[in-house]
Design a protein around this nucleic acid. Structure first.
Lengths: 322, 322
DNA sequence: CTGTTAGCGCGTTCAC
DNA sequence: GTGAACGCGCTAACAG
């Protein structure tokens, strides 16, 4: 920058102005400065700018894993809006590990991210404490709770589980099972499923723990295990479409008719769900990301938010497997 | 930091040392400093540290879109290694747009990313010029070329296309088609496909342009279009499994027997390929990311690299659709 | 092992 | 419209 100023024959501050408030500089000098920049191949040091202005121009997005296409949608949604504003994305992957999540959050806060988006509302206490003490907007996503750290964009996992249960019961299925686990949101869907049966005075659902990260194989294995202990089960709700797809595949190979012998429902409405004609719950991952970005941008712009929690809802998509 | 130093009764620089080289500080003073940090709830300002040390602690990863699971793997591979070293990921999505790619690269270089990973080897001239002038390691991925900007981790898309053609010809198929397009790598696979037929003195393949981003629907439509103009086609190679999956689905619905009436091959070996018993080409997206990260880390550590180009290869996976 | 002195490259006051 | 001075929060040399 010093070089640019010297070549253009102006003061350093003028160069800075050409970059940040071009209008306040005479067209002639502006051109001279721009010329000098091209000559030197000048790339503004945004780090120095961040320090001086106390604005990093970065927003952090922390997800369990980007490989899960459902979270990728959220990242994309947030990035599309943020990048358009010249804000860069700091991406963090927790791998479903609490300590890694805490350390990632600490690092990103240290890098002075101007906002932070996290998946889920149930961060472990140390991570939550960091978020609560952060002086930037914090958006929790993918679920709803009564005591958010700051902002929320999500839907009710509990409600989704309940809706699936209601649908299965309406269809006449009685001996039900829930297969899932791993993360808190999957657990919440199981809770809702359970609660719906309890409300109806029905027998509790059988439960099978399936480990994250979601893999097709795990779904198939889970189904096999389930049928080992409860061969007469009538309908199974899997915490993600990936598991359900595996189970469906297992059924085909084992000659189990779906839904006649066994009904199957998933969650997420991934592309493969439509493809396999799978009943599932649609949630709008991309819009969650957009919503989170919108709230952060509003906060940064000083616009007051009309509400701190946005419920994007979910939609039961009934197809051929139930 | 000033406060921490005052409370702990030491100089500012000692606080800095507790953070960066704890061993060089007496255990007693170290504890005093750490105590003071906890009291104040101190979060080191990494931006200031970056400016002073001229090391940002960030690496940029620029992909067309993170929603494509195949790129997500590469991001994850790079992130897993980098985050373990305390390096943060700056994520950029070009949306297959040259100007957006250029501007993203400029921004990330301005943020003083210590390394940059991009997808593909054929960046538009302005973007390439930026990369070439960057004073940090640059890794191009997902293809191979003779004139890399700096480092390469990839495989031969051309070779992959040729291998698929060879396989189809060996199987006895003669009237072939290639369906794909959009990005340069897909195009390179088509080139290889074409070249293989030409080398054998066979008739040129029919070609159908399919738009990115890859969607299941597009594959189905492409197949319909193809059969409209060339009903007697015997085998079709799609530039990605997503297209191929859509086509396969279309065949099922249209009562076209695969591979008897029409053979289908895809690319990528996504989970759904195995699921649908689709012949495809397996590439190792995760390892590409790991490889890129490894090279960058080596450069940063000053370790000389034995080679600047790493060919991870590909593997033809023959399944039931050919 | 600890402290002192200088910046890092910019933005932000003020003057002119 | 332009410039000089100062400081952002921290690290890199040195010196003791």
């Amino acid at each position: 920058m010093k070089d640019v100023a010297r070549i253009a024959g102006v003061a350093i501050v003028t160069v800075s102005r050409v970059l940040n408030e071009p209008d306040k500089v005479a067209p002639a000098t502006r051109e001279a400065v721009l010329d000098a920049m091209r000559q030197v191949g000048y790339l503004p040091n945004l780090v120095a700018g961040s320090l001086a202005s106390n604005k990093s121009g970065m927003v952090a997005v922390v997800v369990p894993t980007i490989t899960n296409s459902i979270f990728a949608d959220t990242v994309q949604g947030a990035a599309d809006l943020l990048e358009a504003e010249g804000i860069s994305i700091l991406l963090g992957q927790t791998g479903y590990d609490d300590e890694r999540e805490r350390s990632l959050i600490a690092t990103m806060l240290g890098r002075r991210a101007e906002g932070i988006v996290v998946i889920g509302c149930t961060q472990a206490p140390p991570a939550r404490a960091l978020l609560a003490a952060a002086h930037v907007p914090v958006v929790q996503t993918w679920d709803l709770v009564d005591d958010p750290v700051d902002l929320i964009v999500g839907f009710s996992n509990f409600g989704a589980g309940r809706a699936v249960a209601a649908h299965l019961v309406d269809r006449g299925y009685r001996r039900l099972a829930f297969l899932g686990g791993g993360d808190p949101r999957s657990y919440a869907r199981g809770e809702g499923f359970r609660a719906a049966l309890h409300d109806r005075g029905m027998a509790a659902a059988l439960e099978v723990d399936l480990a994250s990260p979601a893999a097709i194989e795990a779904g198939r294995d889970g189904l096999a295990r389930l049928r080992g202990v409860a061969p007469r089960i009538e309908a199974a709700f899997f915490s993600t479409d990936v598991f359900a797809a595996g189970a469906l595949l297992g059924c085909v190979q084992a000659g189990i008719a779906v839904p006649a012998d066994l009904a199957i429902a998933g969650f997420g409405d991934l592309e493969l769900a439509a493809q396999m004609n799978l009943t599932t719950v649609r949630i709008r991952g991309y819009d969650i990301g957009r919503g989170a970005a919108t709230m952060i941008l509003a906060r940064l712009a000083g616009t007051p938010l009309d509400r701190r929690t946005v419920d994007l809802g979910f939609e039961l998509v009934v197809r051929g497997t139930t």
